[in-house]
Design a protein around this nucleic acid. Sequence first.
DNA 1: AACCTTGGCTAAGTGCCTTAGCTTTAAGGC
DNA 2: GCCTTAAAGCTAAGGCACTTAGCCAAGGTT
Lengths: 191, 191
Amino acid sequence: MPRVGLNQQTVVREAARLADEVGYQQLTLAALASRLGVALPSLYKHVRGADALAQKLSALATAELANELTGSAVGRAGGDALRAMADAYRDYAHRHPGRYPATQRVPDPADPEHVEAGERAVGAIVAVLRGYGLTADDAVDAARALRSALHGFVALEAAGGFGLPRDVDRSYHQLVAGLDVAFRSWPTSDT
Amino acid sequence: MPRVGLNQQTVVREAARLADEVGYQQLTLAALASRLGVALPSLYKHVRGADALAQKLSALATAELANELTGSAVGRAGGDALRAMADAYRDYAHRHPGRYPATQRVPDPADPEHVEAGERAVGAIVAVLRGYGLTADDAVDAARALRSALHGFVALEAAGGFGLPRDVDRSYHQLVAGLDVAFRSWPTSDT
DNA sequence: AACCTTGGCTAAGTGCCTTAGCTTTAAGGC
DNA sequence: GCCTTAAAGCTAAGGCACTTAGCCAAGGTT
C-alpha cells in the first residue's frame, strides 16, 4: 500500500475544492476519500468525522472571506468602502459556492483560528460602519443589518429564489445603495 | 392490521408539526412514520418520497406565511405596513422554526397551489412597497432587498449567528427602520 | 538493524431512503 | 348479504452514508 501522504490541511483543502464543485450539501466523506485516492475510513486518521470536517471547512472559508472583506476596504471609506465590501462578499459566494455556506456555521470555540477568523470578518464590517459614525450598540445593530442583507441576498440568489428576469446584479447594487442611505441616517439609539 | 387512515394531508401536516419540534434538518421519514404509528414504507402510499414530502411541506409553509404576511398588512400603509409585515415574518419563523426553512425552497412548477402561494407571498410584499410609490422594476429590486434583509436576519438568528448580548429584537427593529428610510428614498431606476 | 509511530486497509454495524411484492381491509356493486 | 377490487398497510431486501474496531505495512528514529 503506497502512502498518499495526507494530513489535515490537504484533506480540508480538498474538501473545499470538492464542495465548490458539487455543492456544500453534496460534500460527502465517500466522495472526498475517492477524490483523494484513499479508502473512506482512512480519512478518520486526519479528521474526527463528518461534522469535524464541516467545522474545519468553516474555519477555512471564514478566514478566506475575512481576508477578502478586509482587503476590499483598504484605502476606501464611507459608501465607497461599503460598496467595495459588498461586492467582495458576493464575489466570494459566487466564486466559492460550496465554501460560502460553510461560513455561516458558528465558529468552534475550541478552535482559536476559527474564532479569530470570525472576529476578523466582523471587524472588517465594523470598520466600514465606523466610516458612517456608527459605534458601540449602533454598530452592533448596523453590522447585524448589513450581514443580514448581504447574506440574505446571496442565499436567496443561490437558492434560485429570484425568478423574475430583472437583472440580479442591478438589484444587488440597489440594495447596497439602500444600505448606504440607511446607514447615513441610522436612528441613533439613546438607551 | 388496523388501518390508521392516513392521506397526503395528514402526513404533510404531521411532518410540519414534527419539523417544528425537531428541526427541519432532523425531519426524517423514519421519525414521521413512527410518529404516525405506521411502518416507514407505508408513507410511500401517500408521498412519493422524502424529496416530494419536503416539497409539499414547502407548499404548506409558504401558504401559511403568505396568509400571515397578507393579514398583517390589511388596514395599514407605508411604514406602518412595513413594520407590521416584518414582525409577522419574523414571528412566523419563530413560531414555526421547522417550517420556515421549507419556505425558502423554490415552488414546484407542477404544483399550482405551491406556485400560487409563492405568488401571494411576493404579492403581499409588493403591495407594501406600492405604499412607497415603488412599482415595476423598482418594486422588483425593493422586494428582493426586503426579502433578503428579512430572510437574512431570521436565518442568522436561527443559526445562532448573533453572538453578542445586544438585544436582538432591538436590532431587528433598527433594521426595519433602516429599510423604511431606504424605501422612502429608493433610487429610481431610469433604464 | 530493530523499533515503533502512523497512515493506510478490511470488516462490520447503524441509520436512512427506496423498491418490490404480499396481505388485508373496507368500500361498492350485485 | 356476499364478492370483487382498489388501496392501505406490511415484511424483506438493497443502496448509500457515517462510524468504530482492529490489522498491517511504511518509513523515520535510535
